[in-house]
Amino acid sequence: MFPRPIEHSTPTRRFGYQAFLPVALILWLLPLLAIFMTSIRSAKDINSGNVFGIPTEFRLWDNYSAVFIQSEAATYMLNSVLITVPTVAISVTLSCLAGYALAIYKFRVALPLFFLFVAGNFIPFQILMVPVRDMSVQTGLYDTIAGQFLFHAAFQTGFCTLFMRNFIKALPFDLIESARIEGVKEWQIFWYVVLPLVRPAVAALAVLIFTFVWNDFFWANVLTQGEDAKPITAGIRALNGQFVNNWHLVSAASLLAAMPPVAMFFLMQKHFIAGLTMGAVK
């Protein structure tokens, strides 16, 4: 293990390390802690310059419910869910199929097609912006929930296929080979042999795509106009204009918007990190 385990050091160093850890953590999360403290203060505290001290009154419930009462936050949150969940379902399904095809079958264009998905996943959004927006306007998908999740699903299919293909490629090929010799049909191999084995990959992709799409801001601005189809990320910006200088409400709204991905991360931590660090180990 590197660096040398701290247990092998002198007791003073060990103690020093353990005492420093919480300090380092507080410094690292200082912006977040500060905004949390702001979100439970009253407006009076902030205006009188009490930003760091103990709040004179705790307004946790008042501030957070005010966000919902005074703004469209509830609609935005619901829209985010309605955009995110279908995206996850579609892109994970499509990539299971595509990843299986690219990993198991040897055909001439398998690698170029795989690279197409990989490259598509890295391109700047701006190169897609005008045509996708124009197409959405033409087909009536502009400013709708469906218009957003269809685009996200298609775009995220690139990343998901990259992930799935590599995951399936790492499975023992003998399994498929012996199933073929037994005369099992190709779709049955997919359904009964491969699919049960890729469950961890499906879980990892589901949490990652959920987070990516929930946090999207660019497409929310490009593909929506009014309040009806806006997700929370774009909604928050509108709130920011509405709550000018009401920093306690802006803070509360920001933390609310961050909540679902954070919950997802803490509930599915293992899959989340496995997904993000795929390829970091050989």
Partner: peptide, 14 residues
């Protein structure tokens, strides 16, 4: 895990 929009708001205030 936090969206960049929220990070932007946090630092804007920071």
């Amino acid at each position: 895990v936090i969206s960049q929009v929220v990070v932007g708001l946090i630092f804007g205030w920071f």
